[in-house]
Simulated scan of single mutants.
Amino acid sequence: MDIKESVFKDDVSNFIFSLQKLLPKKKETLTSIFEFDKPTLIRLNDVHLEAKNVFPKCFVGAKLVVLRQIMDKVKLMQNYSFGKTKESYKCFSQLLYKEMDTKNIDDGLLIDSTGSAIATYKETIDDFEMRLTSKIKDIVSSETEIVFEKDSEKFIGSISCSMKDVDPITLNLVTQWMYKVRPEISIGSELGIRPLSYPLSPELSFSARYERQSFTLSSTLSRLGFQVCVFKQFTPDLRIATIFNESNKGGPASVGLALHKSYENGSQLKMFVDSQRCGGFTYERDVLFQEHNEVRVIRLLASTLIDRQRRVRFGFGFNLDF
């Protein structure tokens, strides 16, 4: 039996249309990372936020991340990977507790396909915000943290208590505060201690931040080392950052330079180089598919990393947010 060309085209079109229906719908509002209102006062663990967000998170291998809303407050995250997909190289260190972590987490339950779960509960008591987070990785591995946070016009502070694997020795108490001395100058400090460990070894750090409308200079001094971050936004779609690191563990100081460029089609390019002869970039783009009156989207990720051995490695992935 002969296969007609028109029948073959219809079958292919129907197949492609069926695949498009499996993609997530485009969100009603897509906000660019360049378009955000700076808060009047920033948390201590976000003191270097703008500069460190400019640097790319390079990965190697192939990965697929699917985030699906199952119920009102329940989400399912599925991660599929081939090869080494974790960050293979970091051009800056994190000197503060929970630095760069997501702070405004919605109430609910996030379940990972690997078997881990994260439950979050928030409550406002008088002027304090209480946030309880419980992470369960497997039967014997867990982490629980409770945070009390208070903010005002010039001050924001928090006290957190965390424990891993229900082991009292891992009990960790951390207090952070940030105070705005002047509209453009803020200072802060962090104190962490494990009261049940021996010998007691408190972790103390000091931070300072100077910011303008399109320029930010921040620094942190701790027992682990010293760090200075410089952020500059030239145009609404172009910004650069520089990070200087000096570790107390020995070794030479390092300097990294990064660039973040946003394009009119919604794609973003991040690239960096540093004094350790490393470099790399990541490229993200949302591909839109028209389905009658609905628009569906798939986010493409590409990554390239040049390590200290001058090896060039690549990564590719997809992000789907239903």
Rank of each mutant, 00 (worst) to 15 (best):
D2R: 14
K4A: 14
S6K: 15
S6E: 15
K9A: 14
K9V: 13
S13V: 07
N14A: 14
F15L: 13
F15C: 08
L30C: 00
E35F: 00
D37M: 05
P39Y: 03
L41D: 00
V47N: 02
N53M: 15
V54H: 15
P56H: 11
G61V: 11
K63W: 00
V66H: 03
D72N: 11
T85N: 07
Y89Q: 10
K90H: 14
C91H: 08
Q94P: 00
M100F: 10
T102G: 07
K103L: 15
D106T: 07
D106Y: 07
D107T: 01
D107F: 02
L110E: 11
A117Q: 14
A119F: 14
A119H: 11
Y121V: 09
D126I: 06
E143Y: 14
E145F: 00
I146H: 03
E153M: 04
K154E: 13
M163Q: 14
D167V: 09
P168K: 06
L173H: 03
Q176L: 06
W177R: 06
M178W: 07
K180I: 03
R182Q: 11
E184A: 08
I193L: 13
Y198F: 12
P202T: 08
S207H: 07
Y210W: 11
E211Q: 15
R212Q: 13
Q213F: 05
S218W: 02
T220H: 00
S222D: 02
R223C: 07
R223K: 08
G225T: 01
Q227C: 01
C229H: 06
V230C: 14
V230H: 07
Q233M: 11
F234E: 02
P236G: 04
I240W: 11
I243T: 06
N245S: 06
N245H: 02
G251A: 03
P252D: 09
S254N: 05
V255H: 09
K270N: 09
F272E: 04
Q276E: 15
G279E: 01
G279V: 01
T282C: 10
Y283G: 05
E284R: 08
R285N: 07
E291T: 14
V295C: 08
V297H: 03
V297S: 08
V297Q: 12
I298Y: 01
Q309M: 04
G315Y: 02
G315V: 09
G315M: 07
F316E: 01
F318G: 00
L320S: 04
F322E: 09
